[in-house]
Amino acid sequence: MGSIGSILVMIGVVILPISTGDGALRVTRLMIADCFKLSQEQLSRRLMIAIPLFAAAIAVSSMDYAIIWQYFGWANQLLASATLWAVSIYLRSKNRCFWPAAAPAAFLSLVVFQYLFSSPEMCGFSEEASLVSSALLTAVIGVLCLFRGSGLEKAEEPSL
């Protein structure tokens, strides 16, 4: 592909991953600082968060990526199920039909918990024990999310 192909390879293989990693570490640092209400104006305060974060990133980058992708996939599905539960709670608080969000939330929660309980990297339960544990935990979450007061009735509508 010549010189244009070399430029595209450099952009795709070197520049884009570096800028993505830089952005991810910066956002993570700012989220941690915001969570703990730490000012980021002084360099020493930035380094107080950045150095342990860089150490964690280096440790993770030295791991086997097949295992990292398993955890990433599991965490991604967990986030999706939590989002569906949150949508279900919101719809229920507005007296709207919440089942179109709650049904997939329950199914996805069951799948995520089944992996959590049965995977040898996680809990390592037997198939029967993990299925029972997953079903019970999903039922508890469903009852807590859908049939318990959410407190959203008193909340103000966000203005867009």
Rank of each mutant, 00 (worst) to 15 (best):
S6D: 13
I7C: 06
L8C: 09
V9H: 05
M10D: 14
I11K: 08
V13C: 02
V14Q: 08
I15R: 00
I15N: 04
L16G: 04
P17W: 06
I18Q: 08
S19E: 09
G21M: 12
G21Q: 01
G21A: 12
G21N: 11
G21V: 11
L25G: 04
R26I: 14
R26E: 15
R26V: 14
R26L: 15
R26A: 15
T28D: 05
R29L: 10
I32L: 11
I32Q: 01
I32T: 05
A33C: 10
A33F: 05
C35A: 13
C35K: 04
F36S: 04
F36T: 02
K37P: 01
K37M: 04
S39I: 05
Q40Y: 11
E41Q: 14
E41C: 09
E41T: 13
Q42H: 11
L43T: 14
L43S: 13
R45N: 15
R46K: 13
R46G: 14
R46E: 13
L47P: 06
L47R: 06
L47V: 13
M48K: 10
M48D: 10
A50L: 14
A50G: 03
I51R: 08
L53F: 03
A55V: 15
A56N: 01
A56R: 03
A57Q: 06
A57I: 03
A57V: 07
I58A: 07
I58F: 05
A59D: 06
S62F: 07
D64Y: 05
D64V: 00
A66K: 00
A66W: 01
I67Y: 03
I68H: 02
I68L: 07
I68Y: 07
W69R: 07
Q70D: 10
Q70Y: 03
Y71N: 09
Y71W: 08
Y71K: 00
Y71H: 05
F72W: 02
G73T: 06
N76F: 09
N76D: 10
Q77E: 13
Q77G: 05
Q77D: 13
Q77P: 01
L78S: 11
L79R: 08
L79N: 07
L79K: 07
L79C: 06
L79Y: 04
A80M: 12
